[in-house]
Computed example of a mutant assay.
Amino acid sequence: MVQLQVVPDDRRERARDRKRRRFLAAAGRVIDERGLAGLTMQAVAEELDCAVGTIYTYFDSKAALLAALQAEAVETLVASYRTAAASWDPVLDEGEGLDPGLRALVHLQAFGAFFCAASVVLADEFHLQRLLLSERPPGSSAVDQRRPMAVLERLFEIPRSLVDAAVACDVLEPGDTLERVVRWLAALDGVLLLDALAGVDRHLFRGQHHGRALTADLLVGWGADRADVEVAASHVDRLAAVGPLAPPPHGPGYE
C-alpha cells in the first residue's frame, strides 16, 4: 500500500520537474532572441504554445522565472568548475608539489581562467550570471528585488573560499572577502565584453587575456608577491594544457 502511494507521487513530481524545465528552456530562448526586456510570461507561453496561466502555476512572476533560470545557470557553472578542479591537484602534486601558499595562488588564478573560459564554452549560462551583476531584477516588490541574492551567494561561494584560503596561507593580506569577490567577478564580466571587439583588433581586444591579467593584478593589489603570481600563472598554463578549464559538467543531473 505504501509503495502504491509513493510511486504515483514520485511520477507526478518528475513530470512537474520536466514541465518546469521546459518553461526555463523556453525562457532562455526568449532572452537569446529578444533580450531580458523581451522576457515576459506571455512570450514564454507563445514560445511553447501554451496558456500563460499554466506558467504561473510554476513561477509566480517574471522575477521568479528569471531567478530560477539564473540559479540553474550558476549551478551549471559551479558543476563545470568542480569537474575541472577535480583534475588539478594531481597535476600540481607531480614532482615536488607546491607549498600551500603557492597552491592557493594557483587555485585563485585557475578560477579566474575558468571564469574566462566559461564565457565562451558556457556562453548562455555565463550571460545569465552576468545579468545578475549588471541588470536590475524585474519586478518592483521587495521579494522580487531580493530574489537574486540567494543565486549570487551561490555564485560567490567558490571564489570566497579560495580568497579565504589564500589569506589563511598569508599570501594575501586580510580584507573584506565578499567585497573582493564582487569586485573581481564584476570586473571580469566587464573586461570579457572586449571579445565583442575582436573584429576591430584581434590582438588588442582579447577578453580572456585581459581577464587573466586582471586577476593577477588584483591578487598583487591584495598583497600577493608579483613573482609568486607569475609562477602561479605558469602552473595554470600547465592545467590548461592537461584539459579544458571549463569542461562540460559531470555529476548528478549532468550525465
Rank of each mutant, 00 (worst) to 15 (best):
V2K: 08
L4M: 10
P8E: 05
P8C: 05
R11C: 04
R12D: 15
R18L: 12
R18V: 11
K19Y: 14
R20T: 02
R21K: 13
L24Q: 01
A25L: 13
A27I: 12
G28C: 00
R29I: 03
R29H: 09
V30S: 02
D32H: 01
R34T: 08
G35T: 05
T40L: 10
A43I: 03
V44W: 10
V44G: 04
V44M: 05
E46F: 07
E47H: 15
E47D: 10
L48P: 10
L48Q: 00
G53K: 14
I55Q: 09
F59N: 01
D60M: 05
S61Q: 12
A64P: 02
A67I: 00
A67L: 00
A68D: 06
L69K: 01
V74H: 00
T76K: 12
T76L: 04
V78Q: 08
S80L: 09
T83R: 07
A84S: 14
A84D: 00
A85V: 15
S87I: 02
P90T: 15
P90K: 14
V91S: 06
D93W: 06
D93R: 15
E94Y: 06
G95R: 11
E96M: 06
P100V: 00
G101P: 06
G101L: 05
G101Q: 04
R103S: 11
A104F: 06
A104H: 08
L105D: 04
V106H: 05
Q109S: 10
F111D: 02
G112R: 07
C116K: 00
S119P: 02
L122Y: 06
A123S: 15
A123C: 05
D124Y: 08
F126V: 00
H127E: 14
R130G: 06
L131E: 13
S134R: 13
E135P: 02
R136T: 11
P137D: 09
S140C: 05
S140Y: 07
S140N: 11
A142K: 13
R146H: 13
R147E: 08
R147K: 10
M149V: 15
M149S: 14
M149T: 15
A150Y: 09
E153L: 15
R154C: 12
I158Y: 01
I158S: 04
R160L: 10
V163M: 03
A165N: 03
A165E: 06
D170W: 00
E173I: 00
P174G: 13
T177K: 05
L178H: 13
L178Q: 11
L185V: 15
A186C: 15
L188P: 11
D189P: 06
L192C: 11
L192F: 07
L193S: 09
L194R: 06
A196T: 13
R202M: 08
G207W: 11
Q208E: 11
Q208L: 12
H209C: 03
H210D: 07
G211S: 07
R212S: 04
R212T: 11
A213G: 12
A213Q: 11
A216W: 02
D217F: 01
L218N: 11
L219H: 01
V220H: 03
V220W: 09
G221S: 00
W222L: 01
G223A: 03
R226S: 13
A227M: 04
V231K: 09
V231G: 03
V231C: 07
S234L: 12
L239T: 10
A241W: 03
L245S: 12
A246E: 14
P247G: 15
P248K: 12
P248Q: 14
P248Y: 05
P249K: 03
H250Y: 08
P252L: 09
P252Y: 06
Y254Q: 02
